[in-house]
Each structure stands twice: as C-alpha cells, then as structure tokens.
Design a protein around this nucleic acid. Structure first.
Lengths: 195, 195
DNA sequence: ACGAAAACTTGCGGTTATGGCAAGGTGCAT
DNA sequence: ATGCACCTTGCCATAACCGCAAGTTTTCGT
C-alpha cells in the first residue's frame, strides 16, 4: 500500500538540494555550519542517506524553514475532527483535538449506571477545565462535593485529589480540557449559567 | 553552542509517547498500522532509536499531525486575557476561563438574523478550536464551505482566511478555544470596524 | 487488594547503514 | 585547454538497526 509518505521520502533530498542552491550555499558551507561532512550531506540530498532528525533539524534551522516545508507535507486538511474514542475507567473519551502537546481536549461520556459509583479520587499533574453538556455531573475535589448542571463550568488543579462521576446514575456528557503544565489552583463553578 | 535543536532531539520520543497515549493507541496498534515492530517503536519513543523520516512520516500521518508538531518547539504563550465580555462583528464572546496562559476559552454567541450574512473571511495569527453547542454553524476556511451541527468539532490555523456565521439565519452558540501559538495574543476589543 | 491480561521493555545477534577521508569526477570561466 | 571550486563516490571500521521472543511493569475488573 503506497501512500503519500513515500513520495515525501523520495523528494526530501532533491528538495533540500534545491533549497540550498536557491540560497547559494555550498556543501562546504553547510558542512562547516552544522558540523557534518560534505559527503554525508551530498548523499543525503541525493537520497543515498536516510533523513534523520539529527540532520534535518539543523538544516531546518539553517534555512529557517519549518520541517514540513522541507518534507513538503501538504497543509490542506479537513478541519473537522474524527478520532477514535478511548475507553478508560468505564468511561468514553473522545479526543477533540489533534494537536499534541499543550492543552488536550476531550468529550467525556460517563455511561448511565443502575447504582451510584463510589468516589475514588485521583491525583495527577495538570490542570483541568470542564463544561457540562448534559446530565448531572458529580465533581469531588478536596473536601468539596458538587453537582454541576448542563452549561456549568469548572476549572481546577488536578494535583489535588478529584473525581468525576454521575450525580444521579444517569449518563453525563462533558467537555474536558486538560492542560498538563497547569500549576494553578482555582475552583470556580457557574460561569456559564449563574442563576 | 547550544541550539534548541538538541532539546528537540531529546524530546521527540517523549512527545511521540505522550501523543500516542493521548489517543489511546497501543504500540501493538501502531505496529500493525505502520508496519514497524513494537520494539522499534518503543525504543523510538524512549530515545533509544534515531528518529528517521521513515518512522516519523507514517506517525505524522497516523496521528494526523504536522511534522513540526511532532518535533514540537517549546510552547510560548503570552498571556493576554480580557475578562470582560467581548463584542465583535455583532457577536458575543463570553470568557469561560480566567486562567492566564496560552489557550483562551469562550462561549461564542452568533445572534439570529433575518437575512443571511455575506462571508467575509478574516486572517490572524493563531489557532482555533471550536465546538458547536447548538444552531447550525457555517464555517468557511480556504475553499471549504462547511455546515457544522451541534456536537461537531473543528480546528484550524487562523492564518488562513476563515469565517464563522450562522448557516440558516438562526442563532448559533459555540465554544471557541483560541490558541496564540507562539505569537502574542491578537485579541482586541472595539476593533469591529469593517464588515 | 489481588491476579490475570494487556502493555511495554530489553537482551540478543545477524544484517545493514553510517559517515569521514581522500581520491576521483564535473563543469565553468578564463 | 587548464585551473579552480564544487560535488560525488569507493572504502571500511564502527555503529545503528530491528524483529523475535522472553521478561517486566502497568492496568483494571473483580
């Protein structure tokens, strides 16, 4: 099965060469700049050497061009997102963002249950923001035991013990933003539907 | 001479790992998908293998993420928050998070209109993510002209021309996340000049 | 808390790639 | 033609690769 990947692999070299020539840079220049022998660079550009990050990153830097431009990856994509749901802890997480690093967005679905679940608070590094879409969410953080209704918003530091579940046994849907780096402790509710 | 290059080289692996985990994909899944053994993938993610284009491109494709995001430069978000509701282009933006840092969260309300509005695509630095709460959203990006229904999600680079509006003249409510993405936030109130 | 299953890591070893050196092309301007 | 700058390539010791299968850790339902 041949995908676009191979085209890109084949064209990186020529691309690099064209780019270098367009800048009027010689192999000797490059070699001196990034500390790789001319021969290696030559073979890289002619496809006789693998393109490793060790080689590409200094080049991208030198040329001041994003990696994707070196590779020639197409920038056109359907902005809508269809990612496979993740099942964990009996809940369903639908990834809502493709972007790695930084903030992660999920739609979280807590299934209906005949009997209520025992809160088992968890702790992990990060910061969470959530928005209740529908259902009644039970949110336990520290000593607080809150019930959030659709439209309500909460944000809190996850380094404190916390737990999410259904408040009434019915299913709950919410949006979750998770920020791995957050170190701020705040708790607020009712931002969207203060009554 | 420390170039950022070295950091990036060291962090690609962990990055790949985090991304995979965030998507709920196992090494076995990946292995089957891109035809590379689990061990190789494991070592790649733990920095025991070089990151070659042969490995990175299929991964980028699998994750549907640009190469540069895989390699990932440090995220430099310049906090720039407007706590007050923002009115722009006849729309209302309700801040949903007070947290300083990169991502801004708003609830955006597009009012109902008797006659349809002419799409006037805008361009600005950043990255947008949106979730349609209710109503039918018309999203124009580049050549695409899409209608999104409640529950649908989109994300796109706002440096490409884009436009948001009602698809049927009715009001639309959506959640918007705006990510300055390395460039300072470009959010101004009262700059609702042209139409 | 427990135990089994799933997920991940790692030792191994034949095989292949790497990459600097230096010799050998290539082409262009004189 | 000839010199010079630029680029390519044979060589080969060294290092990296990478799948297999066995071992270890983590996960999660009970």
């Amino acid at each position: 099965m041949h995908h676009g990947t191979e085209d890109e692999l084949d064209t990186v070299g020529p691309r690099l060469r064209a780019l270098r020539r367009a800048r009027g840079i010689t192999l000797a220049d490059l070699s001196a700049t990034i500390g790789v022998s001319e021969s290696t660079l030559s073979r890289l550009e002619s496809g006789q050497r693998r393109a490793t990050l060790e080689l590409l990153l200094p080049l991208a830097r030198t040329y001041d061009v994003p990696l994707d431009d070196l590779v020639g990856a197409p920038r056109t994509g359907d902005p809508r997102i269809h990612l496979k749901p993740i099942r964990r802890f009996g809940m369903v997480f639908v990834p809502l963002s493709r972007r790695p690093g930084g903030t992660q967005a999920f739609k979280m679905i807590i299934p209906a249950r005949p009997e209520p679940l025992e809160p088992t608070p968890q702790t992990h590094e990060g910061f969470e923001w959530l928005y209740v879409l529908n259902g009644r969410l039970r949110l336990v953080t520290g000593e607080r035991d809150l019930t959030l209704q659709p439209g309500e918003v909460a944000e809190f530091d996850t380094s404190l013990p916390h737990w999410l579940g259904s408040a009434d046994g019915g299913s709950v849907e919410l949006l979750i933003l998770f920020d791995p780096q957050g170190v701020r402790a705040h708790l607020r509710t009712g931002t969207a539907s203060e009554t």
